[in-house]
Amino acid sequence: MAITLKDLARMAGVAESTVSRALNDKPGVSEETKEKILKLADKHNYQPNRLAQGLAKNKTSVIALLLPDLKDLSYPGLIASVEKAANKAGYQVVLCNTAGSSQKAAGYLDLLQRNQFDGAIIVGGTPAEGKFLRLALENKNNMVLINMLLEELLLPSHLIDYQAEGILAAEHLLEENNVKPPLLVLGNEQEYAEMERKEGFITTCQQHLGSSGEIFSGVTDRAEGYQVFFNIVEKNQPPLAIYVTENFAALGLIEAIKTGGYLVPEDFQVIGTGSDFIADIISPKLTVVDEPLAKMAEEATEKLLKMLAEEEIDSEIKVYDPEIIAGGTT
């Protein structure tokens, strides 16, 4: 059984408050008594009770990680990264799934406001709702945003430059194949990230070729990716380079290419998004525009922890550039 503050007080023959003052190096206790208590604490390997400490300091040593959904394949890496950085500093992480609902998000933010969490990392792309702004205006310095844009206020934010992803993908494909516009296969075109990738990709194609190629959108899974190939291969001069923003779709597409008797990358070049396990299992390994999510999550967490410790932070907004990780598909 772990030794408590009470036990130490009994052993030293002093009041509990005296033990607390001695352990916390506060005035109001003689050097002699202090030394005696510290020796006892050391001898019995006394560890302070985090919960009791939290109650006294109004701290929980827990941070919340709000995610807009749990389907995104990049999130497990992000979560692990946040947790690692938080644990290192003695914080626990609670996962909160807002499922894209502002009401659910408001519920979790309520807990933050009531000090059930010390801070929160908020991931998502939707415009901020009232609850969120209200909390931000309290200037408690306990929120960091990941991939979330705010119109009204400045909060510490870590962002991926999605437009740069589209630009990189286009440039990479045009390096090898610079006459015919490459094909763009998008997921949900209504999502901000997809809009930005599309804009970067199309603008770059137009700059290089004077025109942009065909676009398929709403292609999010393997079957839909598979189908895309049959739509293009019927054409006279199908595009030979393809940028796919969802790796599941890329998986289907490459299966279809191979089924059709063609080779990747000799006949068709494909570039995907994010180095996740799908990119790994595709053969040859998928070339991707990689988002440094793990690094971003780690740095966002470190920033939050700095803020909670009331330390200075160097920059409010940090933008992460994507990079091409070459596999065998281009």
């Binding site: 702004l133 205006l137 844009l149 705010l150 009204e152 206020l153 400045l154 909060l155 934010s157 962002l159 430059d161 437009q163 740069a164 409010e316 907004i317 933008v319």
Partner: peptide, 13 residues
């Protein structure tokens, strides 16, 4: 529409 003193201009945009 609200305008506050602290607004975020995103450096990459």
């Amino acid at each position: 529409a609200m305008v506050f003193q602290n607004y975020a201009l995103y450096p990459h945009m």
